[in-house]
Design a protein around this nucleic acid. Structure first.
Lengths: 206, 206
DNA sequence: AATTTAATGTTGACACTGCTAACATAATCA
DNA sequence: TGATTATGTTAGCAGTGTCAACATTAAATT
């Protein structure tokens, strides 16, 4: 019989799962539907992912790698405030444009990253982007750099969540500065760069 | 037959669902297990919640009401920076102590709050807490108040998410200032008040 | 090269899930 | 009282995660 063995099933499953995850949300991503979409039997994926969490981890790792690339800025020595603002904007854009995948990555579907060393590494590489930029911005101590990293990361992560939430609440298209019934988040969304410039300034000053 | 009609099933289902949601996480909360735990037939809940999302909305609304109470500070006229910091700490504590419920509330399990007016109102009341305090802090314009609200809300929401994530990554108990392999978030967690004091100062100065 | 072993695939099954239809009982209201 | 409505139960469908048993192929060993 031909094609009994696929040869490249794992990679195909992952890339297919990434598409399905972002298209339908990770909660609707089922191993069985993934198998069907990949034209293999219902349980074929279990040869490559022992549990659904394993599959989630693979998709999540993929997402962190993309996020890392998306926010990366190539600099030699000095980093400017504008570059940090750019990084923040890129992060937020990634979170909003890949909302379903972002939910998987930063949510609790994968319980413990320690069980997935590759995922852990990919997630850490995002953090390293923050750290690297802040360390090149000024001659700060490790503690201060850590402070700045976590502050900015929380800020952009929070904005992704809150902007989306208020979008849902106000039922308005995002990135539209129109003032609706709850204008604050929409106002921010329409002035994201200005907003982040102020926030980053505050973080830099410490 | 006695007790064919429960009499108070909806309220019992909701309070039971809140407990189960926080205990097991909202993804594990099933209508059938909820029915079993409440000693009614599998489909009895459907007389009170047409879909699972309806049930989620009820639990979420409950959570927003609790959050509103948790962060509320009773003030007459003037608000101090310390009170805003307190509010932020209370918010973060709520998010960390009721992590599973918080995920439901701020996640995407309930797609559109407009379909659940009571939930929308409860969620808005949280925002009103922020707005009320900032409006009493200084004589700011609505735009500036909105800016401050969304900045702080994003910050505390982001910290809840990131602190938990790094806790998972570093596999360390939270609120422990020990420096682990990724010390930044743990450092923040151990100095939450100082951290927030700086952040809030930055927000106030605008 | 032949044979054993491991990897990778399929089929069938179990328990669980959301949800609907059809029916049973009880409370409300005319 | 009788009809209507609200609220409960039972039976069943389609979909899910996961496992066991089996089939086929690739890789390793003799």
């Amino acid at each position: 019989m031909k094609n009994y063995h696929h040869g490249n099933l794992k990679e195909e499953l992952i890339s297919c799962a990434c598409v399905m995850c972002e298209r339908d949300g990770y909660t609707k991503l089922s191993i069985r539907s993934l198998a069907k979409e990949s034209n293999v039997s219902q349980t074929a994926p279990y040869r490559h992912f022992k549990t659904k969490e394993d599959l989630y981890a693979a998709v999540s790792k993929n997402g962190f790698n993309k996020l890392s690339k998306a926010i990366h800025v190539d600099v030699d020595k000095k980093v400017t405030k504008k570059q940090i603002v750019d990084m923040a904007i890129k992060y937020i854009e990634f979170g909003l444009k890949n909302a379903n995948t972002y939910d998987l990555m930063l949510g609790t579907a994968v319980g413990n990253f320690n069980n997935y060393p590759e995922l852990l590494e990919s997630a850490n590489s995002v953090f390293d982007n923050f750290r690297s930029n802040f360390s090149k911005l000024a001659n700060d101590s490790d503690e201060v750099i850590a402070f700045k990293c976590i502050t900015l990361w929380s800020m952009v992560h929070g904005l992704v969540g809150i902007l989306r939430k208020v979008q849902v609440i106000a039922n308005e298209p995002l990135m539209n500065p129109d003032d609706g019934p709850m204008p604050s988040a929409l106002f921010i969304a329409g002035n994201l760069e200005d907003h982040l410039d102020k926030v980053v300034s505050g973080i830099i000053k410490n």
